[in-house]
Design a binder for these strands. Sequence first.
DNA 1: TGCCAGGCCCTCTTTAGGGCCTT
Length: 213
Amino acid sequence: MTQTLIVLDFETTGMSPDQGARPTEAARVRIVNDSIVDCYQSLMNAGAHAPRFITKLTGITNAMVREAPGVDRVMRELHEFVGRHPVVAHNASFDRQFLEAEWLRLGLPLASTVLCSLRVSRRLYPEVPSHRLGALVEYPPLPRRGCSHRALADAEMTAHLWLRMTADIAWHFRYREVPLDLMQQLQSISRNQAVTYLESYRGRRGLTEFTGS
DNA sequence: TGCCAGGCCCTCTTTAGGGCCTT
C-alpha cells in the first residue's frame, strides 16, 4: 500500500500568530513509502516585519521577503499540495499554529493528521541529550544540505529523521513496514510506555508483520 | 537591554514548577 507524507517547515517573523507573527518561508518535502520523492520551498510576503534577531537566525531579510510571492498564493498552493495527506513537522505544534492561522484566514480547512517528529524522537531515543533538530540529525549523522533555520534544509532534515525513526522501529521490533497509525499512537503515549507499546502493537498485528526471526 | 508564546513532558507532581523546542 502506498503511503504518502508531507513534511513541512515554516520560517516566521516570531513565535506566535496570536502575537502578530507571520510566515516568511515555507518548505515541503514529500515522502512516498520510505523515499523522499520531491522537495520545494518558497519565500512569501505577508507584509510583516522580521526583527533583526530573526534575520540573523534565518538569513531571511525583509528585502528578500518584499520581493517574494504573496502569502495568499503560497499558502493556497500549499493547501492544494497537502490535500488530505498526513503532515509531519519537528515540534509540530509550532508549524501547525501557523498553518491553521494562515489557512483559516483564507477559509481553507486543515484536513490532515499532523504528526510530530520531536514527540516521536523523545520516545524512541530517550538517551539523546538534546532533541533539537540540528542535534538529532548528528546522532548519528544524517544527510543534510543547506543552512539550518532555512525552511527547506530543516524540512529535509526532518524527513530524514522521520525515515530513520521508522527504519529503527522496523529493525528493532521486526516490522515489515511501519504503519502510520503506529507512529500516531506512539506520539500520544508516555515515554515509559513506548517500548511496551511497540511490542504489543506487533503482537496485535500478527506474525505477518515480522521480517523474520 | 531584556523580554516576549504555547504546548509538551518530566518530577523533588497532580491544588505546580520548570526545562525543552519551535522562530
